[in-house]
Design a protein around this nucleic acid. Sequence first.
DNA 1: AAACTAGTCAACCGCTAGTCA
DNA 2: GTGACTAGCGGTTGACTAGTT
Length: 313
Amino acid sequence: MVRTPCCRAELGLKKGAWTPGEDQKLTSYVNRHGEGGWRTLPEKAGLKRCGKSCRLRWANYLRPDIKRGEFTEDEERSIISLHALHGNKWAAIARGLPGRTDNEIKNYWNTHIKKRLIKKGVDPLTHKSISANLQDIPKKQDINQTIIMSDDGPDHSAKVKKSARFLNRVANRFGKRINQSVLSEIIGSGGTHTTITTSATVDSESDKSASSSFAPTSNLLMTANGNATSSPSAFSESSINDRLMYWDKEYNIEFSTFLNDEDFMVLEESCAENNEFMKELTRFLQEDETDNIEMMPVNEHQDSFEDIDNYFA
DNA sequence: AAACTAGTCAACCGCTAGTCA
DNA sequence: GTGACTAGCGGTTGACTAGTT
């Protein structure tokens, strides 16, 4: 199917900034006939604009219920908390702020809030603090597997590399399918002496998109701060709270089920999918056992697979 | 005063989902 | 089931402005 372009230059349609006269025509037409029928509206209203342009002008500027001017502190707080919940879903955020448009909020986020959060040491994508390690992310040619270690010697280094390789496999396999922060939290932290930064190969395109998008990527970064319990758990009343799904006994690396409130919301939206994800992750871990990494699959652990199913059901 | 730079934001573009004939 | 069309969304662009050199 070949789609006819919305705004064809050869039709003499105007682009760029709207004049007061055009605004007047559009406003009076919509006031008389109501919103909708944007495709035919320009002709009926006597405008040399495409319908899409008219809809946008109305929605973002001319609508009478639009609140203009500076964002208040309350509004800013709302944007931040809604962004933590929805990510870059500007329309969803705008629904929580009457009188503000998605475009306005998006611009305000990109020009004000984002910078302020970075200044405060908060990652605007994940809303978590930016650790010193993350500020020092290696160049892409070096990040396929990078291990930042404490001075525990070469033996420990080799052990950690094995686990990092495993984590890297998980990242490669699952990173594109679920929210990155969710995946990071599911897999959890490393041992108390080890900080692992592991990633799937990142090409230039995903580099670019990662800078402006909350979308899941195959680039998984895990920082082991040895303080997994600092993550607020949305499952505090759950009987399986604080349990470990996997435990790399030899290297004392834990793969935990800690989730924070935001992640819980994400999971809540797609429980079935995540249930499947957990099953697949378990199979994947079992396969990995053949690589001599001592893992305890969930169905052999004291936490039964059923528990995990119930968890996400 | 002129040139340059950085910030802001309205508008555009490409894409997708939903609806209807 | 298919194609045409509409509405809406998120990312990007570019014109404008203010500040700096």
